[in-house]
């Protein structure tokens, strides 16, 4: 059963359409990455899902409920840079958040302690938030989003603003959290998505460019590819250009002394290219045979 169903969701600001009639479904228990370059409409989409923005048109249905029904109780949301009251302590804030989601005082306190412990803020729970670091605030953001045990967790760029250590910590947390609840997070880093997600939704210019299970997309877009780099000699570059018209090359990309070829048979192509290079005494710097990754797909969609 799908947890969240989005149909023809659109958000426009005057003539500018920032999310253009997108439709997708999110299955229960999955971890979904909303992927795309800056300005693709990821944040706008998440904010509409969180009920912070009114969609211009389209429907959002949570657990099969009628569109427009109140579902915020089952939702946890962490914005890109969560802002808290600096004069509160971490614990006070999480208890406050739990109470706002309808928990009683006792339950709120115990649940808050549990989720603070979980994100590793137990020792700092009684300190004022004003003195927290960026990574601690991000983890406090997760704690407040988890405290009422939501069925869907929405995270907007959870690791973009963090240093490598903070990033590692949050990714580890997400890996644990995704075992218990459905997670949707936006990112512009493909690597993060590949690390923990089941599905990706690739957005660009307010449209969904590609979506599906990560494993399926990986096999679908995996093509044999050969990368070549030569020294900047005229003959060498001419040779690279001539390779582009070989029968085994499906698609080529030439950038001066650097070339990428999608080929139909990597074995045959490798043999022929290396033979020719030896014959013509081409000063090769780099030769790499392998398969293209989602990174290439991402770049292709984004159009760089």
């Amino acid at each position: 059963m799908s947890l969240l169903q989005v149909t023809n969701l659109r958000k426009s600001y005057g003539a500018h359409i920032s999310v253009h009639d997108i439709s997708f479904e999110i299955e229960k228990g999955r971890c979904v990455a909303l992927l795309g370059p800056n300005g693709a409409g990821k944040t706008t989409t998440l904010r509409m899902l969180a009920g912070l923005l009114e969609p211009t048109s389209g429907m959002i249905s949570f657990e099969g409920s009628r569109p427009g029904a109140e579902y915020r109780k089952g939702l946890g949301y962490v914005p890109q840079s969560p802002a808290f009251y600096g004069w509160m302590t971490g614990q006070e804030y999480v208890v406050f958040a739990a109470k706002l989601s309808g928990m009683g005082a006792k339950e709120a306190t115990s649940s808050a302690l549990e989720s603070l412990k979980r994100v590793g803020l137990k020792d700092d729970a009684r300190r004022r938030i004003g003195g927290y670091s960026g990574g601690m605030k991000q983890r406090l953001g997760l704690a407040q989003a988890l405290v009422h045990r939501p069925r869907l967790l929405l995270l907007d760029e959870p690791v973009s603003a963090l240093d490598p250590i903070g990033r590692r910590e949050v990714m580890e947390l997400l890996r644990e959290i995704r075992e218990e609840t459905t997670v949707v997070f936006s990112t512009h880093v493909l690597h993060d998505a590949e690390e923990i997600c089941d599905d990706i939704i690739l957005m660009n210019h307010g449209l969904i460019a590609e979506q599906g299970a990560l494993s399926q997309l990986r096999s679908q877009y995996s093509l044999p590819v050969i990368r070549l780099r030569t020294e900047k000699h005229k003959e060498a570059i001419q040779w690279l250009e001539s390779l582009a018209s070989k029968p085994f090359v499906l698609e080529s990309q030439l950038l001066g002394d650097h070339a990428v070829f999608n080929v139909n048979d990597v074995e045959k192509a490798r043999q022929m290219i290396l033979q020719e290079a030896a014959q013509l005494e081409i000063p090769l710097l780099q030769f790499e045979a392998g398969s293209s990754t989602l990174e290439d797909l991402f770049m292709k969609v984004v159009g760089v």
Binding site: A50, L52, R72, Y77, L100
Partner: peptide, 13 residues
């Protein structure tokens, strides 16, 4: 302006 309101509005309030 600080964004603290956002985290209240995503709750059933």
């Amino acid at each position: 302006y600080s964004g603290t309101l956002e985290l209240i509005l995503v709750r059933p309030v």
